[in-house]
Design a protein around this nucleic acid. Structure first.
Lengths: 222, 222
DNA sequence: TGTACATCAGTGAACGCGCGTTCACTGATGTAC
DNA sequence: TGTACATCAGTGAACGCGCGTTCACTGATGTAC
């Protein structure tokens, strides 16, 4: 496998690649992922269009790299929060902060899929890392008695289909809690980022906190 | 105001407009909203590109009309379910059925916004209709004692910022429930439609039902 | 009922644009003796 | 240390494509007398 040797040329390549991706993020933040254009990035960097083909095989590879970087960034952010002692609430707030920092980055991963683009399998692994961090926090967040609560039909179903959790030794109630964490917070966040709350009067941050409260008050019933 | 007179010509115009939109929906269903192309639609209809400008001022007006139609369809669907006696659970299932029938139609409204496209104010009214139907069902779904439960900080906040509910006389707890209904079901639905559950093993429909159960078991706390 | 005119649907050519991508080439940077 | 060669970054021209949109025009459909 192509080991990244540390020659000056390799360092230069890595730097230009990073610079291309930085401009790509800028462009995505402005006009969304579907408007991403290699030529536009090249122009922004003061290069000719074809030059970028030294660094990326084609447009799809660039997007793949951006998706990977976004997943990596989120996984690292959550992991860092967890290592700093954050509980589930802390992870939720770290997620929101991360999402608001660059809405289009969040939407690139969790929003409407880019038409005609197929995500690489590779990201499944990083997605698993995120799930692992989440499941650990979810397990810790369960009230003591919830660990032995008889499973509902759905938690039983989850206990039988836990491959997505990467064999994480979490109790069924924690699997259920992790899914609720994910879908509920995504529900609030994605509507907020899409601007669906503007003009509705209330504070999105308050709704987010309220959902978080409910999540912890009733972990994994139905 | 331009009254739609019922001359043969007007009827023909309306029919062609409808046909254009039908092809537009087909195209959106296949490749997403950002790939929508007037020329492609014209070709599909066996017409030349410029002919469509007899029916739509430009691409944006077509999209606006599609957005309006999608909102109208959802509002009518939910209203019809409510008139048939559906409770909140019934509305939720009607919503899911509607979303799965044409994922891209759902995503056109609630997904990542089309870059550079500004939704018309007009849809706010239809959105209000949807909220009204929802709030009525939410009010009915509240347990008797929930109507007099002291407000939490967030329900108090909502009671003060209820313009989005269009002066619907719903108790604060119902406002809170409606928001949870919306954001939680959207969370599950949008992730399901984006394909984020594929390969995870469990049934999305079961997760949807579980979220629904939780929603009714704990209406409007945090 | 028939003729004269106005309205409108649809065409084809054209404009300008930006896209992804290929190719042959220049010039600079690194490597081997 | 200097020379000969290979590697690689970047350029400019080009290809083919599809897009939204305008414009002058033809031919059919409807309207008024």
């Amino acid at each position: 496998m192509a080991q990244t040797d540390d020659t000056p040329r390799e360092r230069y390549r890595a730097q230009v690649r990073a610079e291309v991706m930085a401009h790509a993020w800028e462009q995505i933040a402005t006009a969304g992922a579907s408007a991403l254009s290699l030529n536009a990035i090249a122009k922004q960097m003061g290069m000719s269009g074809p030059a970028l083909y030294r660094y990326f095989a084609n447009r799809d590879e660039l997007i793949t790299e951006l998706v990977r970087e976004a997943y990596r960034s989120l996984a690292d952010t959550l992991r860092a929060a967890a290592d700093d002692g954050a509980n589930l609430t802390g992870l939720a707030r770290a997620l929101r902060t991360w999402a608001l920092a660059d809405p289009q980055r969040y939407l690139l991963i969790y929003g409407t899929p880019v038409p005609g683009y197929q995500a690489p399998e590779d990201t499944t692994a990083i997605s698993g890392e995120i799930m692992a961090t989440l499941l650990t926090a979810c397990t810790a967040a369960l009230p003591a008695d919830a660990r032995d609560t008889p499973p509902t039909p759905f938690t039983a179903h989850l206990a039988d289909h836990r491959s997505w959790a990467g064999d994480h030794p979490a109790p069924p109630a924690a699997l259920r809690l992790a899914l609720a964490f994910w879908t509920r917070l995504h529900g609030v966040l994605s509507l907020e980022l899409a601007g669906h709350f503007t003009g509705m009067g209330f504070y999105p941050a308050t709704l987010f906190e309220a959902e978080l409260t409910d999540l912890l008050a009733q972990p994994g019933h139905g």
